[in-house]
Write a protein that binds this DNA or RNA. Structure first.
Length: 468
RNA sequence: GGCGACGUAGCCAAGUGGUAAGGCAGAGCUCUGCAAAAGCUCCAUUCGGCGGUUCAAAUCCGCCCGUCGCCUCCA
């Protein structure tokens, strides 16, 4: 399996530290507002990657943090505190509300929950401990109640984002605070101003942790000091990911993550999404207009590293594409609910499934190429459609083999095909009733009662659409 | 200004040295009472432009043009 490793900017063979066991960490959201469509892209991508790694037989531990401590805006305000004052509630109410909303959105999109969703606020002692180590190692220093990481103390600083300390110095826009020795030094711990509500005791006084330290502390706690994959959005490559590496490697004296997978950003109508531009689109908004499977299909029809542009037109096209992708799989499930001839799976179909599976795997093995993987399903759909249209008797074994293939790949790995036709416990009875209507319509057509036939057709179509 | 990514058909999008996947849209045919769905066929001699390397380039190199992202909180 090949993976593009941003650390070395090339694809390379993926080798987990322990064969068959993969530890992955992905930077999670800061929960101070509703999640947007950009989060959907990132987390659907990693969800699919994790599903695939598992499907290939690996045992995966997937950790994704929930940032609930809040970080400083350029106005000096804390994002979570700002949200709290906006809504006139406790900071932790904000955190709770939006953390729940985040998981609701992810659940709706079929994103499987990470194995561990550690919260920054629940890991302050671990962060303090790590900061102490960094001070002891002379990679960090205290200054006026705050602690900063000394970027000049770590020779590899900049290795992920390809930046050099010298180049960055000139472009620094941030006001150089006299507390820092170097303008690029970043905060590990910040002294809390009196009005700052989120505060903890520490060896350096009352304060709160810096933005980057939580990911370092929590990843090493749950995945080890060196782990396999670190993921996130490309927009966090600098400074966040860079600082994570510097802190972790300085504290532990060993490599942090072996493979860095960073997803491309999402733009809206060609421009970056931002609140100030008023083009901030939440997942909840999109779910009102488009079905979750179509959103996943949209995300997965491009490569995870490529940027994608969101627009209603693009989602509408994706919805149509999704219908064509899923229709044969749903038709097979429908047919499995009706009486069928028992029998083994047709050997030609078994061969076609085998070929499709091989193609699917080779696409996904090549840096999780979901676009090509989807194409292999479209190709296989021709086999299914031709069979379904042949008018010949199809055995239950054949349909079950096809169904199993769609369930594994389209449903299990990509999450774009429903793995069952309806959650209703009466699905079988409903299918029987629909079958009865179809027969009634056929009878009406034979006696050329087209009014009755069309009426039945319209009703059945409505039922089947809702069910799918 | 610095760093990085990208530019493939009307649109979206794979493809990183061997002769252009797939989807949407569009055209024709088959099937049909009419439709829908589905099937078959067609739809880029060509990959932003210009040079170069090579038996061979969308793929490698150089220059130019254009778009986007990051450098400040961001998935």
């Amino acid at each position: 399996m090949l993976i593009y490793n941003t650390l070395i900017r090339t694809k390379e063979e993926f080798k987990p530290i322990t064969e068959g066991r993969i530890h992955i960490y992905v930077c999670g959201p800061t929960v101070y507002d509703y999640s947007h469509i950009g989060h959907a892209k990132t987390y659907v991508a990693f969800d699919t990657i994790v599903r695939y790694l598992r499907w290939r037989g690996n045992s995966v531990r997937y950790v994704q943090n929930v940032t609930d401590v809040g970080h400083l805006l350029d106005t000096g305000e804390d994002r979570i505190l700002k949200g709290a004052s906006r809504e006139r509630v406790e900071p932790m109410e904000i955190v709770e509300k939006y953390a729940r909303a985040y998981f609701e959105d992810m659940d709706a999109l079929g994103v499987q929950r990470p194995d561990i969703s550690p919260r920054a606020s629940a890991h302050v002692p671990e962060q303090i401990e790590m900061i102490q180590t960094l001070i002891k190692n002379e990679n960090a220093y205290e200054s006026n109640g705050s602690v900063y990481f000394d970027v000049t103390s770590h020779k590899d600083y900049g290795k992920l984002s390809g930046r050099k300390i010298e180049d960055l110095e000139e472009g620094t826009r941030e006001d150089v605070r006299e507390e820092k020795r170097h303008p690029l030094d970043f905060a590990l711990w910040k002294k809390a101003a009196p009005e700052h509500i989120l505060r903890w005791n520490s060896p350096w006084g009352v304060g709160f942790p810096g933005w980057h330290i939580e990911c370092s502390a929590m990843s090493s706690k749950y995945l080890g000091e060196t782990f396999d994959i670190h993921g996130g959005g490309i927009d966090n490559i600098f400074p966040h990911n860079e600082c994570e590496i510097a802190q972790s490697e300085a504290a532990h004296g060993k490599p942090f993550a072996n493979y860095w997978l960073l997803t491309g950003s999402l733009t809206i109508d060609g421009v970056k999404m931002s609140k100030s531009l008023g083009n901030f689109v939440t997942i909840k908004d999109v779910l009102k207009k488009f079905r979750p499977h179509a959103i996943r299909f949209f995300v997965l029809s491009g490569h995870y590293r490529s940027p994608i542009d969101f627009s209603d037109e693009a989602l509408e096209a994706a919805s149509k594409g999704w219908e064509r992708l899923a229709a044969p799989a749903l038709a097979v499930k429908q047919k499995l609910n009706s009486p069928l001839n028992a029998g083994e799976a047709d050997s030609g179909i078994v061969k076609a499934i085998h070929d499709a599976r091989t193609n699917f795997i080779s696409a996904m093995d090549d840096d999780f190429n979901t676009a090509t993987a989807l194409a292999t399903l479209f190709d296989f759909n021709k086999v299914t459609n031709t069979l379904l249209n042949s008018g010949e008797a199809i055995t239950r074994g054949t349909l079950e083999a096809i169904d199993a293939f769609y369930n594994e790949t389209g449903a299990g790995v990509l999450g774009v095909i429903p793995n069952q036709i309806s959650s209703s416990v009466n699905a079988e009875r409903e299918a029987g009733l629909i079958q009865l209507l179809i027969e009634q319509r056929a009878a009406a057509r034979v006696r050329k009662d087209f009014a009755a036939s069309d009426s039945i057709r319209n009703h059945v179509e409505g039922l089947v659409m809702r069910e799918a």
